[in-house]
Design a protein around this nucleic acid. Structure first.
Lengths: 251, 251
DNA sequence: AAGTGGTCTAGACCACCCT
DNA sequence: GGGTGGTCTAGACCACTTA
């Protein structure tokens, strides 16, 4: 293989495996590699990028670790569809006392388009001309437990209004429909009291303590693409999360 | 290097790099490699384990990713002391509106030993004969914002009572003093109202909404070694966390 | 100048999956 | 049987740190 190191005068800002990872990530972000698509094998990719198999492998393993790819011996490498039970709700942290997921189903759903508010402009960017807002109440076993309000740049999900009712799990839908891949979300959690409106939606007394969760979601390019505010009842479920020592290291 | 693969009849339940990782992790857990200690270089370790440098490297990089080691070219590999600002508080998620860490300082501290309650027995194990309980109120800029109650197996931190007052950040202390390395914590978050006792400790009105966080902490061997309950004010700070797509994958 | 980890290559053998 | 990823080895060159 030809070397494109400093000997040839080419400055490599990133190591080769990182460049390959970025390029392959872009192919997923642009939809060139769709959700569920099979990738060429390691040797073919290595040949295409002009690197060795080991270098491509390092990139592929990093992407697998990020949850973008699934690799299995004999079967090959495919773009994650994010449809398995566990990854479907990887951003949904509500669990009951036994650690079981509280399966949500939307009961009320509203969609509207509008001019961005100053808050939406701050998060989604100055260049966002129109936002689409979703509002949902979700229940479990007939009990409403969360009120959600979400905002997206309307250009990121053009045509969403024709897909109502939306699936309960939004992110896999966004991936398959718009190649909009949500990679990470920042959540800010505080405690709040139910006002009359929330109390009515959640069927609790006014003044009931609730979790208020503000979320900013980022896509593959680390753009902030979603703004969300949720209010949760925590009388029959709780927000459960595992923190690991390495969390801070690479973040 | 000699091969100990199936050719010699030796069954390898784990790949070599995994075995090396487990053994090296044990050395940290037992204190043979103390916090801050320098490790032998890759070739020396490879020689000791009878594997190639690349295999040892894979184990070392995994341990670095877990936050156990720090590696730098020219300097070598050392056991993380967990004393840098960011990793010091990797399990402390409270941030102010601008995302800055709310630096806590303990103002009230109590230590007691006792028989385990049924709850403590359930978490810490049947074989735990005595627990040590810590209670702390912590403040920021003169404002109390959290009440914490923690329980440990007294055998895990024998002599802790002679170290009062304990440092604000407990986990680095536990590592350096007892080689007790906290690797991950499970947190369960609900909303609660301040009762008269909490209201007094936190200097808020009775009925103020608070975050209630129950924590179970695990060590290097994945033993549950700590049980904790905390109540947070969220009027000038919030619990902030970043969730990533890959979180569910390896957990 | 010597030693360390970081990157990259080339090639071997294996277990697994599919047809 | 042919192809895939998983593991393991051996060796090269580089950038960086420390002395």
């Amino acid at each position: 293989m030809r070397k494109e190191n400093k000997k040839t005068g080419v400055l490599l800002a990133q190591p080769l495996y990182k460049r390959a990872e970025i390029e392959m990530t872009n192919r997923i972000a642009t939809g060139k590699w769709e959700a569920g698509a099979q990738l060429p094998n390691e040797f073919a990719l290595a040949d295409e990028f002009g690197v060795s198999q080991g270098t491509i492998r390092k990139a592929l393993m990093a992407m697998e670790h990020r949850g973008l790819l699934t690799r299995r011996p004999g079967r090959g490498t495919v773009v994650c569809k994010t449809t398995s039970e566990e990854s479907l709700y990887s951003f949904f942290r509500l669990r009951d006392a036994d650690g079981r997921m509280v399966v949500p189903s939307p009961v009320v759903e509203a969609v509207e388009f509008g001019e961005p508010t100053s808050e939406e402009t701050r998060i989604l960017g100055e260049s966002c001309p129109k936002v689409v807002r979703l509002a949902r109440v979700r229940e479990n076993n007939g009990r409403p437990f969360v009120v959600e309000r979400m905002s997206f740049d309307a250009r990121d999900c053009d045509g969403i209004e024709s897909d109502l009712p939306l699936p309960s799990s939004l992110y896999p839908y966004l991936h398959e429909r718009f190649s909009l891949v949500i990679m990470k979300v920042d959540e800010s959690i505080t405690a709040a009291l139910a006002d009359p409106e929330l109390a009515k939606s959640l069927q609790v007394e006014v003044g009931t303590p609730l979790l208020r969760i503000q979320r900013i979601a980022r896509d593959l390019a680390d753009r902030q693409v979603e703004l969300r505010e949720s209010y949760y009842r925590t009388d029959f479920a709780s927000y459960q999360i595992q923190l690991t020592r390495s969390d801070g290291a690479d973040a």
